[in-house]
Design a binder for these strands. Structure first.
Lengths: 146, 146
DNA sequence: TTATACTCTACCATTATGATAGAGATTATA
DNA sequence: TATAATCTCTATCATAATGGTAGAGTATAA
């Protein structure tokens, strides 16, 4: 698995929308500024996330973006897979990957599968509700420590 | 982490050399044929592996490659890191990665670290001795099952 | 001397990545 | 109804990584 900038931007944006859940919509401009993302790049990412069913949009003046589901219904892994593809370290099993003609003989394959499983354990067992909660706690602790 | 073709080729080659450990050298040509690797590409990979201290070479007629250490002294993770770089899913902590200016505030960072740790658990606790042994067992079981 | 290897550097094609550009569609509100 | 603020869509582009090819050079056993 490799998280690209696009994936990183998507995750940060969903997190911002989760932190704002229940409030007003956030504009692309606002979201871009909050996470320091090139605005035209974020436009495309948000359109992707919309097609993926993660966010909704409101057009026109007073428009903007909001989550399409509750933060508790969005798993980290879902977003990662949607934006950056499968989490396997190598696509042995993909038909695209010609390197392994006989996967049954490949001793490395079990290793990659084990890694994929452990990675899934992490990213498929945490939602954006939990992530938002963690984020709030960090921000509060920073405020108090000043 | 992403295993590239180059990494995949390197691992298969080291495995072949491990299976052959103690025997005669294997030529690039032979190694390429065994794992179906473009020969000129494998030449470069073997030179890399040599610089990395994983293999040794003998030049001239009757030349070829052999492991520079015992298979039990070569960890899977070492080769992966040497050829394909760090195993982290995203290089938050790298100075190259500008996306996270304040990593102390980033809740995703801990996730990536957890994944990296679990991945290390897998690849740094298995040597090519064990991998070669597994490979032998698979080949034997296939022979008997025919 | 020669055939068979490894060595080294350069080059190249394709794709993924990380954007940028600009025209268009929608909607609240003055 | 005009207009400003917003999202929408398609095209384009620069750079780097990846996967691979080419060819001349060096070493050595027989």
């Amino acid at each position: 698995m490799r998280i690209t900038y696009k994936g990183d931007y998507a995750l940060k944006t969903i997190l911002n929308l989760a932190l704002n859940y229940g409030g007003e919509t956030l504009t692309i401009h606002d979201l871009a500024k909050r996470s320091d993302i090139p605005i035209k790049f974020l436009e495309q990412i948000l359109l992707d996330l919309k097609r993926g069913g993660f966010v909704e949009s409101r057009r026109g003046k007073i428009g903007g973006y909001l989550l399409a589901k509750q933060p508790s219904r969005i798993k980290l892994g879902e977003v990662i897979r949607f934006i950056d593809g499968p989490i396997e370290p190598i696509a042995c099993t993909d038909k695209i990957y010609a390197g392994c003609k006989d996967t049954s003989k490949c001793i490395f394959r079990k290793i990659w599968q084990e890694i994929a499983l452990k990675t899934s354990d992490v990213i498929d067992n945490i939602t954006f509700e939990e992530l938002a909660s963690r984020q709030k706690r960090i921000q509060e602790s920073l405020v108090y420590s000043i």
